[in-house]
């Protein structure tokens, strides 16, 4: 297993957001965590990329190594975990190209960086057309593409995504998931959290259901799609 999370607990002040959740992701897999707003999905991802501290007793291992000794920048640059954050967090005062260049800041393989950048522009031709534009002038969908492209530049082993479908028109959503499939096909593991459960479960191989900071269900994505509880609570059927 590539990513192993055990007994992960996170609190914001006195409010406990995650009550010791455990899950794992295999190399090359696409895994999703679905759940309602406020269930703790973003918190889970932020704990993995060390943007927020986890409580003592929590265990997060990546390729057999504990990530808890690293800061966020090392989690990204040393371990190869890239995080597409909630709300995209692109740098609006930088051009599209600069956003991608910055994401490769810590990489020493400049030849590969140039190749990867070209690959990102091939994957998202809309970004290619807007290379020299300031990122804040991009549409929401284009900003999401940039956030994914940037994550691809920063770390290659696993990409964790926070609601990549948020705010996208239905057609763009499908494009985005196609792009993620292509990234996955090149060997990058994908862990995404989504409110759009139907889309996420169709895309992923396995899924977890997060409710009020606890994982309540897990299994192959196709089974979760057919699960009556999931249907009732998340698929609106």
């Amino acid at each position: 297993m590539q990513l192993v999370v055990e007994n992960l607990s996170v609190s914001y002040g006195k409010i406990k957001a995650l009550h010791g959740i455990s899950f794992s992701v295999n190399q090359g897999e696409i895994v999703t965590i679905i759940g309602a707003n406020g269930a703790g999905k973003s918190t889970t991802l932020r704990a993995i990329s060390r943007m927020i501290p986890s409580e003592p007793g929590s265990k997060i291992e990546f390729m057999g190594e504990s990530i808890l000794k690293y800061n966020t920048d090392k989690v990204v640059s040393k371990l190869g975990i890239s995080h597409v954050p909630e709300g995209r967090m692109i740098f609006g005062n930088l051009t599209v190209t600069e956003n991608l260049t910055l994401a490769s800041f810590a990489r020493k393989d400049s030849g590969e960086v140039a190749k990867d950048k070209k690959w990102v522009f091939d994957l998202f031709p809309r970004l290619d057309e807007r290379r020299e534009q300031l990122a804040e002038t991009l549409s929401g969908g284009e900003q999401q593409m940039l956030a994914v492209g940037r994550a691809y530049m920063s770390g290659r082993k696993i990409m964790i995504l926070d609601e990549p479908s948020m705010g996208l028109a239905p057609l763009l959503m499908l494009d985005m998931f196609d792009a993620l499939k292509e990234i996955n096909a090149l060997g990058t593991t994908i862990l995404l959290v989504e409110q759009n459960a139907r889309l996420a479960l169709k895309f992923a191989q396995r899924g977890y259901v997060l409710e009020n900071g606890r994982l309540v269900l897990q299994g192959p994505a196709s089974e979760l799609l057919d699960n009556p509880e999931v249907k009732k609570a998340y698929l609106g059927a």
């Binding site: 640059s77 995080h83 967090m89 740098f91 930088l94 990489r107």
Partner: peptide, 16 residues
């Protein structure tokens, strides 16, 4: 420049 725009996102780029 990126820091001046969004301080929290900079470490996610692998920048310390």
């Amino acid at each position: 420049r990126a820091m001046s725009y969004d301080f929290l996102a900079v470490p996610l780029m692998g920048v310390s």
